[in-house]
Computed example of a mutant assay.
Amino acid sequence: MPDAEGAAKAPSLRRQTWVGLQGIGPVVVVGTVALGCLVVQLPKPFVDVSMVALLALGVGAFVFLANRFGPEEAHRRVAEARSIWVRTASGGWMEPDGPADPQDVALSLPRSWQVVAACGRLRFPVEGTMIRAETWVRHPIRGSKRSPSRVEVVAADAVTGPERVFVQIGLSVDPLLVAPAASLRGRSTEEPVWAEAVRERVGQHRDVLATVSVGRERVILFALDDPRLETLERRARLVRDIAVMVSQAESGR
């Protein structure tokens, strides 16, 4: 596990890094409309010119905010923070951005989404278990009314057998935000012997809305936000603990 010194040197990240991106457009629109309400009260000769200037200001504000706080800048900061942090981990490294592991996607991705890239990818050991962490860029499938978004994924290989268990962290009025599509398909009514222990360990963890998925020889935590390093550390320990717990139980059968 990387040490605290590495985290201290890394750029600071916000808990709502990815959700916050979705607010840039609405903020600019609301601000432009509010100024427009003031402009229309000006004398008639000034209204047309002022409206053109206001629209140009709105476009300029959007471009500035998108460049300063948009997805590319956020990805750059997250990747930089992780790169600095992981250097302090013995046996840890960064990997280039690329496609997500199809097995990870099949186990943990909610329905109506597709993953187009895995970014800020790093690998590091936690007490003998290799952890992989990355940010997924996901787009809605054709016909969906959802908007593109980013999510955080922390995973480790494990001996799970054929069973699958899914445990949600937090509550939501829209359970499909983090409910894996695999959890909605038919499963055996008999749970594995380690299922209750997994739920107890997940119950000790505090996080944003997320789901822990166990199956397909892996453990995956899929969270809607919070790429902060201190959160990554806690998630990595959770995933490591579950991977070891499940593997030991399966090996003892």
Rank of each mutant, 00 (worst) to 15 (best):
A4D: 14
E5S: 15
E5L: 14
A8R: 15
A8S: 14
A8F: 12
K9M: 10
S12Q: 06
S12L: 07
S12I: 07
L13P: 10
V19N: 14
G20T: 07
G23S: 10
I24C: 13
I24R: 09
V27E: 02
V28G: 06
V29H: 00
V30E: 14
V30M: 15
L38S: 01
L38T: 02
V40D: 02
Q41G: 12
K44L: 11
K44H: 11
P45L: 09
P45G: 06
D48A: 04
M51V: 05
L54G: 02
L54P: 04
G58I: 00
V59T: 07
A61G: 03
F62W: 15
V63P: 02
F64R: 08
F64E: 06
L65E: 09
L65T: 08
R68M: 15
F69C: 06
A74M: 04
S83L: 05
I84T: 15
V86S: 02
V86T: 04
V86K: 04
T88L: 12
S90M: 13
W93I: 07
G98S: 03
Q103F: 09
Q103T: 11
V105D: 12
A106W: 02
L107S: 08
S108L: 00
S108R: 00
L109A: 13
W113G: 05
V115Y: 11
V115I: 14
V115W: 10
C119V: 11
R121M: 11
R121F: 07
F124G: 08
E127D: 15
M130C: 10
R132Y: 13
E134P: 13
T135Y: 08
W136V: 10
W136N: 07
R138G: 05
P140C: 10
G143V: 03
S144A: 10
K145E: 13
K145C: 13
S147G: 13
P148F: 08
S149A: 06
S149I: 00
T160W: 10
G161R: 13
E163P: 08
F166P: 03
G170S: 09
L171D: 10
D174S: 07
D174E: 09
P175Y: 04
P175Q: 06
L176E: 05
L176K: 02
L176H: 00
V178L: 08
A181P: 05
S183E: 10
L184P: 03
L184R: 00
R185E: 15
R185D: 14
G186Q: 15
T189C: 03
E191F: 07
E191A: 10
W194P: 12
A197C: 02
V198F: 05
V198S: 00
R201F: 01
G203A: 11
G203E: 09
Q204T: 11
H205D: 00
D207P: 08
L209W: 00
A210H: 04
A210N: 01
T211F: 04
S213W: 08
S213E: 08
V214K: 05
R218W: 01
V219A: 00
A223S: 12
L224V: 06
D226T: 01
P227Y: 02
P227S: 05
P227A: 01
R228G: 05
R228A: 07
L229A: 12
E230H: 14
R234P: 13
R237I: 03
L238M: 05
R240G: 01
A243G: 13
M245K: 04
E250N: 04
S251V: 07
G252L: 06
